[in-house]
Simulated scan of single mutants.
Amino acid sequence: MNPTGATHSPASAPAVAGQAAAIPFRQDSAVSLPEAGGMLVAALLLLAAFYGLAWYARRAGWLDRWMGGRRIEPGGNMAKLAVMERRAISRKTVIYRISDGEQEYLLVESSASIGLARSGKHA
């Protein structure tokens, strides 16, 4: 017996818990088809916006710093480059004779590496 005079038995505790209302299970699906379609459309719009921004940034030259590409100025020295001759040494190795208007260079391209050397000839 406790100080209030009521007696508690271990058998009466589950009866009290069983009288409380149970939490009902969710009857509808977690994600409906229109919600999933809306998320898919939103993801596609974000992807298209990112692609458009990347395309514009590349065209505007904003990415040249990270892409490693060099812009060629019209009428600059790069406009004078010409491949004079191309020889295949093997299936995976090719030698190019290149002229820039003043000097000639030999460019050796293989599957392993690329090498460039002056040929000693003046164009």
Rank of each mutant, 00 (worst) to 15 (best):
M1S: 15
N2R: 07
N2K: 09
N2P: 01
N2D: 10
N2V: 12
N2F: 07
P3H: 12
A6Q: 14
S9M: 08
P10H: 05
A11D: 14
S12K: 09
S12R: 08
A13H: 08
A13C: 08
P14M: 10
P14Q: 13
P14H: 07
P14W: 13
P14R: 12
A15E: 14
Q19L: 15
A20E: 02
A21Y: 06
A22T: 09
I23M: 05
P24G: 14
P24E: 13
P24K: 14
P24A: 15
R26F: 09
R26E: 11
Q27N: 09
D28P: 02
D28R: 09
D28K: 08
S29T: 10
S29P: 01
A30Y: 04
A30P: 01
V31D: 00
P34F: 03
A36G: 05
G37H: 00
G38M: 03
M39V: 04
M39N: 07
L40S: 06
L40E: 04
A42G: 07
A42K: 11
A42E: 08
A42M: 08
A43E: 11
A43C: 12
A43G: 13
L44Y: 04
L45E: 15
L45T: 15
L46K: 13
L46A: 14
L46D: 09
F50V: 08
F50C: 10
Y51Q: 08
L53D: 06
L53H: 10
A54P: 00
A54H: 06
W55H: 10
W55Q: 10
Y56D: 01
A57K: 01
A57C: 05
R58H: 08
R58S: 06
R59D: 04
R59W: 01
R59N: 05
A60Q: 06
L63M: 15
D64C: 04
D64W: 01
D64A: 06
W66F: 14
W66C: 00
M67F: 04
G68R: 07
G69K: 02
G69A: 06
E73D: 13
G75P: 02
N77F: 09
M78T: 12
M78R: 10
A79I: 02
A79N: 05
A79L: 02
A79Q: 03
K80Y: 07
K80P: 02
K80C: 07
A82S: 14
A82R: 14
A82N: 11
V83C: 06
V83W: 02
E85V: 02
R86H: 02
A88L: 12
A88Q: 11
I89E: 11
S90A: 14
T93D: 03
T93P: 01
V94N: 03
Y96A: 00
I98S: 01
I98K: 00
S99N: 13
S99G: 15
S99C: 11
D100G: 05
G101N: 05
G101L: 07
E102S: 11
Y105H: 10
Y105A: 03
L106A: 01
L106P: 01
L106H: 02
L107G: 03
L107V: 15
V108D: 00
E109M: 08
S110P: 02
S110C: 05
S110T: 14
S110I: 05
S111W: 06
S111D: 08
S111V: 12
A112H: 04
A112R: 10
S113K: 10
S113H: 05
S113E: 04
L116D: 05
L116N: 03
R118Q: 10
S119I: 07
G120Y: 09
K121D: 03
